[in-house]
Design a protein around this nucleic acid. Structure first.
Length: 276
DNA sequence: TCCTTATGTACAA
DNA sequence: TGTACCTAAGGAC
């Protein structure tokens, strides 16, 4: 489930379990691809975690960072351990990285990236990413400056991590729906007022995503209860307007939700509600 | 048991 | 634009 909210939540969850405990962390790579780095890190304490867009950073000692990117399939599962009672279960052979201490373990599977990097290499990652709605230092004007000089569609620009970091296919589709914006509009036509509204909304939606560890975008007045419709659960675990709802009726106007291929990803939108 | 699909990105041509 | 990479779940047989 990796959009930016997942990564920021992971930064918190890793820190809660492994940092500030005063104990070293057992670091292993049962799957093997991270074995050498794991051997260097094991026994050190996790001192800090950081997230920018879909990139997660775990700090050990003073200048060692583990850089993690989940890609499309990556997942982290946490487990609790009771000392001398319930030990961590043996990791399966797809676990790229396991952290374990006296009270918890965390298994990382299927990441696109899991590598030991330096401060400078970490900085280079930050430098190539756009502002992240979940970071307090984010400057939305930087994003709009790029958007306003591009003829590329707003739908494609929102997925470009150099423009905005952390937005993925779900938030892209949902935020455009919430603002009634036609996904095919060129970036250069997005006004400052529209961008301000979209950015503010992304900040709120993604913060809620971190809190709940899932993506919900449906306004209270459009929930099934409020609309007098039977309750539902969308495929991905949250409640949304258009994502993966192709051909189903729009919650607001009843028009069939449309889908199309855009830069090798599935775009979803309501042709009636999104005409701005 | 096989096939498709997925909230992602990098690189080659 | 196409392809490669990483994993697991769900549906069709």
């Amino acid at each position: 489930m990796p959009e930016g909210h997942t990564i920021h939540r992971l930064a918190q969850d890793y820190a809660t379990r492994f940092s500030g405990t005063g104990t070293g962390t057992l670091v292993t790579s049962p799957q093997g691809k991270f074995s050498d780095a794991a051997a260097l890190l094991t026994g050190a304490e996790l001192t800090h975690t950081d997230a920018h867009g879909k990139h997660l950073f775990l700090r050990f000692r003073d200048s060692d960072w583990v850089h993690i990117h989940l890609g499309l399939f990556g997942k982290v599962t946490f487990g609790e351990v009771a000392p001398g009672d319930t030990p961590a279960p043996p990791p399966t052979d797809t676990v790229r990285l396991r952290l374990a201490n006296d009270t918890a373990y965390a298994d990382l599977r299927g990441p696109t990236t899991c590598a030991l990097i330096t401060d400078a290499e970490k900085q280079a990652v930050h430098d190539r990413l756009g502002p992240d709605p979940l970071r307090p230092d984010a400057d939305p004007a930087t994003a709009h400056a790029r958007i306003r000089r591009s003829r590329t569609t707003i739908a494609a620009l929102l997925m470009d991590q150099k423009v905005v970091a952390g937005v993925g296919n779900v938030y892209r589709a949902e935020v455009l729906f919430r603002h009634g914006i036609d996904p095919y509009r060129p970036g250069k036509d997005i006004t400052p007022a529209e961008w301000d509204a979209v950015w503010t909304d992304l900040v709120a939606l993604m913060r809620e995503g971190v809190r709940n560890n899932r993506i919900d975008t449906v306004r209270p007045e459009h929930t099934p209860e409020a609309m007098g419709r039977p309750p539902r659960v969308d495929d991905h675990g949250g409640e949304v307007y258009v994502y993966r709802r192709a051909t189903l009726p729009c919650h607001i106007c009843g028009t069939g939700i449309r889908t199309a291929d855009l830069a090798a990803r599935n775009l979803f939108w309501c042709p009636t509600c999104q005409t701005n």
